[in-house]
Amino acid sequence: MQKEVLINFDRCLGCRSCQLACAVAHSTAGNLFGAILNGEKPRTRIFVHQVGGQKAPLNCRHCEDAPCIDACIAGAMHRQEDGTVTNVGGEQQCTACWMCVMVCPYGVIRSDAAGTMALKCDRECRDEAGVPACVRACPTGALVYAGVDEYSGRRRVDVLARALQQVSGNF
């Protein structure tokens, strides 16, 4: 089953390690010290926000019915075989019309530094095991790379364990 970057919202401490790892993974040097010494300015494609008392990361959901693909006038935004939605390597080049930015329900598409291209999670950061950089960088397990059913199954067991422990007092 295809894996997604899923979020345990209660685990996020707001450390922004995912953002840094995402930016580094998209640098030419490919490592933190190298990128800094080269003077590179790679941009993150995952975003950590403070919402009320909650800290939370958010990145592209790679929607099945992706509005950004439908809205892309240039024909740059497309879906790859593995399900990844990206505007790199499409039929045409991204023209920075920002249609994708406007229709994205999650607000996770942004501009590159020069304002010449839309930038989004492209999963071009996965290691040999196929795990994205943001997930590898997360020290608390707030970001999980898993199949959706596998993830929800785990959550069900978790919530049931807690609920039934309260009922029986000694589950």
């Binding site: 953002q19 790892a21 010290f33 941009r43």
Partner: peptide
Amino acid sequence: QPQCGFGELGLCCRNCNMGPCRIDPFGDG
């Protein structure tokens, strides 16, 4: 692993309670 990139670069400050603060090394944040 991985160790915190802000810490590795020395860009994290905990010297007062308006913080903790950290600086985006890539100029993004």
